[in-house]
Design a protein around this nucleic acid. Structure first.
Lengths: 181, 181
DNA sequence: CGGCGCATGTAACTTGTTACATGATTCC
DNA sequence: GGAATCATGTAACAAGTTACATGCGCCG
């Protein structure tokens, strides 16, 4: 079964949510290591509901705003826990920038420098977010047992982003240094 | 156009190759940041050939072993160079282990420790390979202008793998430390 | 002569993205 | 009144994996 199911179940294990909220949470918290589109989330919620792992609570047309909130049930919790114990199978990394770096001797160095600057900026922003989130979590570490776990995830996010940033800087320097013809 | 096209063109820009060789090279050199299956490579070669970007040279049934070797042509080189100058669009990372880490307070710590040990071992092996490749390239740095570029790619591979390994160790320690109830 | 590596390819399937349609609410 | 955000959903498409079929050459 595809991982989308478990991302959704996992988030629902914390609190009942709508599809929209799930998408937002993934973008916010999992940005650096996971992503999902609406095209995956809504059908997944429907399937999970059909399989009896989640339940629809207050389809609030109460305020005439169509909104479906889903809650995980005990079967869903068990499915989630079962998956958590299974070996990790997915580790997908696709970094186009490295592909371009690998072949970039075929074009002018400035093109690659541009790509690297963009890459660096992107990950500097991401690192900043990680730092903020990390500090916030630090202050409320005792409020919830899972905060310490989330902090571990943030920790890798910081390390990887730092590695990306350092590497970009080094590589830009390398490309800027004059070559012997 | 999907990136598979350019991975293939890129490798063919170094020397003529068969589909099988392309697959092997990707697994060997790009392992930590890219992957392709035969189901992508063979159709891509066919399409590239139809589009006139590569040409089939010696379909060597010469030794009665069916084998198609492809060579890039000037149109292909241009397409490759054009792509190299375009902004980077793809950066896909999907680390199931972080998903599991995030929710692992829901199951026994030993399950997660097992996942982490496996992850650590995997990346220790990968780091070793990177170190070997790095040293080899270092000694033949002047033989080909692209060696220095490849070395830059290896450099990020090392950094990221080190980050993964450090993080695994830290996280295992964290999970092994006794919790207050 | 058996197994491994070389070699090609495809069909079925799963996964994932994009673009679009629709409409309410909130805030300026 | 108009933009942004909240909110749901699908259809078409693109990308990617897996499993399978096939067969040669080489080594022991």
């Amino acid at each position: 079964m595809k991982e989308t199911n478990y991302v959704v179940l996992g988030l629902l294990s914390e609190s009942p949510l709508t599809g929209y909220q799930i998408k937002r949470l993934i973008d916010l918290r999992f940005r650096f290591f996971w992503s999902e589109s609406y095209g995956q989330i809504y059908p997944t919620l429907k399937a999970l509901s059909n399989d009896g792992l989640v339940e629809e609570v207050d389809t609030a047309t109460s305020r005439n705003r169509s909104q479906k909130t889903y809650r995980i049930n005990s079967a869903g919790m068990e499915a989630l826990q079962h998956w958590l114990r299974q070996p990790v199978v997915r580790e997908t990394v696709r970094l186009e920038i490295l592909l371009k770096m690998y072949f970039s001797h075929l074009v002018d160095a400035n093109a690659m420098i541009g790509h690297l600057l963009e890459f660096q900026e992107k990950h500097e922003k991401e690192l900043k977010v990680m730092n903020v989130v990390g500090k916030e979590l630090q202050t409320i570490l005792d409020k919830d047992p899972n905060h310490a776990y989330i902090l571990r995830v943030v920790s890798l996010g910081k390390k990887v982003n730092k590695a990306y940033i350092d590497w970009s800087k080094e590589t830009i320097k390398f490309l800027e240094s004059p070559k012997k013809p």
